[in-house]
Amino acid sequence: METSDRLIRALQWVWVGFAFFLVGGIIIWIVHLIRTSWSLDDTLSASIGISLVAIPIFLVFMGVVFYVFWGVAVHGRER
């Protein structure tokens, strides 16, 4: 496992980590929006309604990205 191979693998983790960070950030932002609308008592129903749809979608993205990364980069190498 020469150094360049380990470097590539590390960079790949960083690349996928960045994707997770992005999608995770958005989810946290949506949660923050719910919390503010709850604390300000300002149409909580709208925030919850939208987040019920938005958060699962972003979770699916996370899932797909992880599934591809796991399937291709980690396991797929040998078989």
């Binding site: 590539i8 693998r9 960079l11 790949q12 690349w15 797909v64 599934y67 591809v68 990364f69 399937g71 291709v72 980069a73 396991h75 797929g76 190498r77 040998e78 078989r79």
Partner: peptide
């Protein structure tokens, strides 16, 4: 390219994962 290719070697398992994704 090698980083972005995520170690793709065209194996059958990788192909199946990719198609499903």
């Amino acid at each position: 390219y090698s980083v972005l290719a995520l170690g793709w070697t065209g194996t059958e398992h990788q192909q199946r994962v990719l198609n499903r994704a």
